[in-house]
Amino acid sequence: MSLTLLAQPGITQQVADTVTTGEAVAFWVLGPLALAGALGMLFARNAVHSALWLVLTMLSLGVLYMVQQAPFLGFVQIIVYTGAIMMLFLFVLMLVGRDSSDSVVEVLRGQRFAATVLGIGFAGLVVGALGRALTDVTPVGLVTPNTTNGGNVANIGQLLFTDYLFPFELTSALLITAAIGAMVLAFASRAKQTRKTQRELVEERFRGERPGSLPGPGVFATANSVATPALLPDGSVARESLSEIVEPTAKERLDDDVAEVSGTGHRPDARALKGES
């Protein structure tokens, strides 16, 4: 319903400086949701769940912005924060993957206790201060800037390009710097290895030590999954069929598996015929 509320600024016009029932309802629904999202983020073991909880909080906050007569900011919040920033977080989480779950054990002695006490203390102080300082505040409301002169978006744009022009330009420099910095950090290692040319790939394939194409996963295997390695005619695992991307540790684990299956760990497989161990 908040959307409808927003869509009709005419309603808020008459009751600008007070909070309407609709807004109160929206607040009492979204506020606890935001808090729940924050708490969920705090307590979720899995980092992806944390991120999702945070998305909930951010969406709630975005809607709260709209309710608070800042429709543009509300949607920017959704687009930028949930659409871009949190998506980036999810991206990185999925790339990092393996480490996304926190261990339950706290290694720093007293950290949790101290953090809880300090957090409660901080919240108490701020809430107390706000409660004392802002009891008698009468909000002016944004009806005037939101209705005159092109509305909320136009007025924000005007502020950005007049009063805040210099900071605005600075943010552009900041963004460019950040983009370049991120590229430098992210591409640092990749720039070293050069891509193989078509010719090299061809020569590798036809003149390498294994004529023909590499074995695909699942060949001669019991399952048709990418995680299942190909087997050589004698039943041993074909090392080349394991993907680095799919399962980072598979190759490391393979040696153990081979040893386990063979019993000795040193039983020669088919490759021994070629002089490899």
Binding site: L39, L118, I120, A123
Partner: peptide, 9 residues
């Protein structure tokens, strides 16, 4: 304020 404290914790 509450959200900020939760974030800090």
């Amino acid at each position: 304020a509450l959200l900020f404290s939760l974030g800090a914790v």
